[in-house]
């Protein structure tokens, strides 16, 4: 049985270097706020370091981290729904003034369920089957979300930014 062995000395630094940007990107898209994304990534890393799980392969490790990050984002979103607050920071804090700001803003205006599948499919290049396992839905539901997400994204982008 192959397993990943991460020496204790590797710790947080190696973990952040390996998966930091991937998780940060995902959390930014889910939360639309850099400070919350940072909290979600930190919580995800902490869970990993506390549990120190052993995995079959790096793919399983990555999928585990994505799932935990997704759940952390959901918790933060739920908290936000209960405790309405004015965000001091908007999406511009994350986009770093790239010319693609319009696409990012259009993506952020989509409901959360579409954002996650679009990022996992188009950016992280996960197959539909694996996305279905991560978000605990059927592959056909994932396909539907992709289709609807694409359509909504295009509509918003055309209407607001073209």
């Amino acid at each position: 049985m192959k397993q990943i062995i991460r020496a204790p000395s590797d710790g947080a630094e190696a973990l952040v270097a390996a998966y930091g940007s991937l998780l940060f990107r995902l959390c930014c898209v889910m939360l639309g706020n850099q400070a919350d994304a940072e909290d979600a990534v930190q919580e995800t890393m902490l869970q990993y370091l506390k549990k120190h799980p052993s995995f079959e392969s790096p793919g399983h490790e990555k999928a585990w981290l994505i799932t935990v990050a997704k759940n952390e984002c959901r918790d933060i979103l739920r908290f936000r729904q209960r405790h309405r607050q004015v965000s001091l920071e908007d999406w511009e804090g994350v986009s770093y003034d790239t010319p693609d700001k319009g696409i990012l803003e259009a993506l952020m205006s989509l409901p959360e369920q579409y954002r996650l599948v679009l990022v996992l499919y188009y950016v992280e290049e996960y197959p539909v089957k694996e996305i279905a396992q991560i978000i605990r839905r059927t592959p056909s539901a994932v396909k539907m979300r992709l289709q609807k997400g694409r359509r909504l994204l295009e509509e918003i982008y055309r209407k607001e930014y073209l």
Partner: peptide, 11 residues
């Protein structure tokens, strides 16, 4: 375009 835009987000 979406992929390119998102890949520019680095921690």
């Amino acid at each position: 375009n979406l992929k390119n835009a998102l890949e520019k987000i680095e921690m």
